[in-house]
Design a protein around this nucleic acid. Sequence first.
DNA 1: CGTGAAATATGTATCGT
DNA 2: ACGATACATATTTCACG
Lengths: 158, 158
Amino acid sequence: MECVVSLDRIDRRILALLQQDAGQTNQALAERVGLSPPSCLKRVRRLEHDGYIQRRVALLSPERLGPLLHIVVEVTMERDRKDLYQQFLRRALGHAAVKQCYQVTGEIDFVLIVVVADMDAYDRFCDEVLYADPNMRKFRTLVSRFRNKFETGFDVGA
Amino acid sequence: MECVVSLDRIDRRILALLQQDAGQTNQALAERVGLSPPSCLKRVRRLEHDGYIQRRVALLSPERLGPLLHIVVEVTMERDRKDLYQQFLRRALGHAAVKQCYQVTGEIDFVLIVVVADMDAYDRFCDEVLYADPNMRKFRTLVSRFRNKFETGFDVGA
DNA sequence: CGTGAAATATGTATCGT
DNA sequence: ACGATACATATTTCACG
C-alpha cells in the first residue's frame, strides 16, 4: 500500500485529466502531459494496476432517463457496535438503490444517497434496508427536487 | 427535449454497459449488445450528442491520493426566495470543494457533499460559501470517516 | 444495419539517456 | 529507471450496399 508520495507531477497531471475526461485518446492525453504516447500509456497502465484509477464510467443525464428520485437518508443506529454496523452496511451496500454511503460522526451514523424511480420503490428500500435492521433506531428522509451538481473528481495536487 | 421513449432496448443496454465500464473498446461493446462495431458506434455517438451520455470520467481511489475529508453539509436558508436560492447556488456550485448539491424539501433546503484536504480547507469553504451568504440561516456539518460506497450508475431499464 | 477498406490509435520491442 | 522512436497489431471510422 504505497501512498501519494510515489506519484510525480506527470502522474498527477494524468490523473487530473482523466478524471475530467476519460474519453480522450491516449495520444491526446500524451500530448497534454508532454510525453510520447507509449510512455504515457505505460503510466496510465501503472496507475490502473496500482489502484489509483479504480475504473472508467460514463456519467448519464438522470433527467433524460425517466423520472428519478434522489433521496438523502440520515440513519441513526441504536447502539454503536461495530458488528451491528457491519450488519447494516451489508444490507445497505448490497441494495441497488443505495448509490453512496458515508459513515459520519455525531448524532447521525450514516448518510445514504438513494436513487429510485418513485416513492413506491423508496418504500421498498425502507422495508428492505432500514426497517429490516434491528439496530436501526431512526432515519430522516430528505427528498431532492434537483441535483444541482454532481462531480466525481477531486484535487490530486496537479 | 425528447425523453426516455426514444431509446430502444439496445440503447438502454449500451447505456447500462457504459456506465459500468466506459473503458472497454467499441468492439467489445458492440459484441455485447449484438451489433457490428460501426452500428454500435453510431448509437453511442447519438447518445452522446442527444445528451444521454454526459461525459466519461475516471474514478480515482480517494484513500490512495492523500487524506481527504468527505463532509455532508445540510444548509437551511432564511427565506424561501428563488432569487436568494440562486445567489447561494452560484457561490456553492462554483466552489471546487462542493462535489454534489441536492435541493431538498422539508426543514433543510440544500444538502452538499464537500470534499476537502483537511479541516482548515473546510473552514475556508464555510467562510467563502456559507457565512458569505446573507440568506443562509444555519448549517449542520456531518464529517464522514468512511465513504463505504460510491456508485455513479443507475437503472436505465435495460 | 452490415461489409470492407482507409485512417487512427494502441501496444511492443528496442535503443538511448 | 524512464522516455523516444519505429514498427506491428487493433480499433475506429467512412463509403457503400
